[in-house]
Nucleic acid binder design. Structure first.
Lengths: 232, 232
DNA sequence: CCGGAAGTTGACCAAAGCGTCAACTTTCTC
DNA sequence: GAGAAAGTTGACGCTTTGGTCAACTTCCGG
């Protein structure tokens, strides 16, 4: 209903099976100077457009305009709108791993949590567009999150929940439900990027500054740490 | 670029000025049995569609199908897609006030906060679709949030922040930044509805149950209260 | 039970959307 | 520097979409 719309069941091009488009695209797999540069240009432009308009609202024409390349050229590198989007989603998913790396069972819980909160807020501040793009995807039910993506996310989340549990077992923090603690961490650190308008409205300012992020980090850290029985 | 597309600068219908559409619509203002029923039918169907697809992704044809009314009939009651959407957004905005009513300076802070968290989670659970629709609107920068809407939200938020400050001044809770406390409350209670896919993934279940919501309420309440120096 | 208001609806329109294509130019490779 | 591979692009096809319209039926107060 989205893609392949007027192509129907039977491929019209020669060659066997599907192939073509996304994979097998003419410029889809090349790694030449030009192709690398152009793919980057396109993805950068696409982030902006997808962030502002969402998947459905974004048009290839707009991405073309933003990247200053003709529409047909976009199709030369990415066979479909979906292919561009999926690439971007996969990217952001991987980029979150860095912040998560803070949470290891060996570290001091207070230190680790504080580090995580700070790293996560830092990331969302610097990559607000991607953050929002992902938020949009999630709000729409994760239509383009593959089974693998979900499994990966789940594995990582659960690994971190086991870290919390290890801390609790060792009596190093209060016993709380790890899932919901994780949600609190995740949601409060995402908020400023994902719901920028609302945050700005609450802060009564036209832009969220680095100072705002600092204060957010401090407040969230203090409440979470104390809330989990971790002395400051 | 969205609406009024092929109408251009000059209205084509007779009558002076704009008028027509949204306001002045034929069936736009009537309060007959039939019109009330149909408007409700349409809005109910529209919530579903807008929630799933977002503003841009939703099509009137789809809303028509979902409400089992012909497309032209939708236009009889709502002049534009935007009019339907705006109505829905305005509605949800008002419905949040109820939960907020918990937060008054006179009440015991611990009790008030616990009540708020519970009420908010309850609301998002029962009106998950609207919640998500609003989240989607916010993620897209609040294109359809009028100046009045924003002002109202800001006024309410700030009023509640003053409640927090009153509690702090009276030494009834720790001194923390009220904006960011508010964000923590808001974001963690919205998460389960807005990011349903992610929450389900973390919970490793196919549906978020009432029990899940209970555990969420308990965990969030405990961490926030203790985190703000409020004895359980 | 009549006349006007309210409601219903199929057919239609123009714009915008995604994706295609074939001809052309630039860039490599040997 | 010639031939092949890679890249470029304007014009085009078909579908969907928001919105309109005019003819028709139903409803309701007097």
């Amino acid at each position: 209903m989205d893609t392949n719309r007027h192509i129907g069941e039977i491929p019209r091009w020669g060659m066997g099976m599907m192939a073509r488009r996304t994979e097998g695209r003419p410029g889809g797999n090349t790694t030449t100077r030009i192709s690398v540069r152009n793919r980057k240009t396109i993805l950068d432009a696409a982030i902006k457009v997808f962030t502002e308009k969402g998947y459905d609202g974004a048009s290839i024409a707009e991405i073309a305009a933003a990247s200053k390349l003709p529409k047909a050229n976009i199709y030369y590198y990415f066979g479909t709108k979906e292919a561009i989007y999926r690439t971007l989603i996969a990217d952001v998913l991987h980029e979150w791993d860095d912040a998560l790396a803070h949470l290891t069972a060996e570290r001091d819980p207070a230190e680790a949590l504080a580090g995580y909160i700070r790293a996560k807020l830092d990331f969302t501040r610097r990559h607000a567009a991607q953050s929002r793009m992902f938020a949009n995807e999630a709000v729409h039910g994760g239509r383009f999150l593959s089974r693998t993506d979900r499994a990966r996310m789940q594995a990582i989340t659960h690994a971190k929940m086991r870290v919390f549990e290890a801390w609790m077992d060792a009596g190093r923090m209060d016993r709380v439900d790890p899932v919901h603690l994780f949600v609190m961490l995740w949601s409060s650190t995402q908020y400023y990027a994902d719901f920028d308008v609302l945050a700005r409205n609450a802060l009564a300012s036209s832009r969220i500054t680095v100072d705002d992020y600092d204060r957010a980090a401090e407040t969230i850290t203090r409440i979470i740490l104390k809330g989990c029985g971790l002395a400051a």
